[in-house]
């Protein structure tokens, strides 16, 4: 299985190490030609404004939108989720407009208010120690979006819509690989071999 990690900036290595430990290969995606033959995409945490600039500088917004619209599975964490969201606030920022949620950037405030907490995730047997760093807050979710976990305020922190998974916290900063495992299993379950050709046609 080959996962493409958006490779411009952020906590990339951390995801790579977990994926490798689970037997999945990964490559860093910085140009459109690197979107071919992927089984899934992963958007890491980092600075969403910086990643967005790099996507624009590298003309990667349209190719990404294309593969995501064609159903390539994606997991997006923190800043990555801001890129994947349909709408962002404070302030409004361009995005890929995929996952039907409205995200408030830096929702909990500056670094001083970053925190960790146990969250219960649907279908997970035990709670997950979630690390929130200058995290966004999901203000609202569209009808297609399923909330898989919430923080102590009741804000959604883990959502899914079909093959798209979004988290406001950082599973790559813990020793717990259950969320990555879950994502890889979902890809396997919805084997998308039949989609490969469509996706590649989408890019080229």
């Amino acid at each position: 299985m080959l996962i493409g990690l958006l490779g411009f900036q952020g906590a990339i290595e951390e995801h790579e190490m977990i994926l490798a430990s689970l037997g999945a290969d990964s490559i860093r995606v910085k140009k459109a030609s690197e979107l071919i033959a992927l089984d899934g995409l992963l958007f890491p945490g980092g600075e969403s404004t910086t990643m967005l600039k790099m996507l624009e500088f590298s003309n990667l917004l349209d190719p990404l939108q294309s593969v995501l619209s064609h159903g390539l599975p994606v997991m997006a964490t923190c800043a990555g989720l801001i890129l994947l969201a349909k709408k962002t606030t404070s302030p409004i920022q361009k995005s890929l407009g995929q996952l039907d949620i409205t995200v408030k950037r830096n929702g909990y405030g500056p670094q001083y208010f970053s925190f960790c907490e146990e969250v219960s995730i649907e279908s997970f047997e035990k709670t997950f120690r979630a690390v929130f760093i200058r995290a966004p807050i999901i203000l609202s979710t569209g009808p297609s979006v399923q909330v898989m976990a919430r923080d102590h305020h009741g804000h959604p922190v883990f959502v899914r819509s079909g093959r798209q998974f979004g988290l406001t916290f950082h599973p790559e900063l813990t020793q717990d690989d259950r969320i990555h495992r879950f994502f890889l299993n979902q890809i396997k379950k919805n084997s998308r071999r039949e989609l490969c050709q469509d996706i590649q046609n989408g890019i080229t």
Partner: peptide
């Protein structure tokens, strides 16, 4: 430990920047 994770973690988010 939480503070170590979030504070070192913010620097991890800045990598490549």
């Amino acid at each position: 430990n939480d503070l170590i994770v979030t504070n070192r973690g913010l620097a991890q988010m800045l990598k490549g920047g």
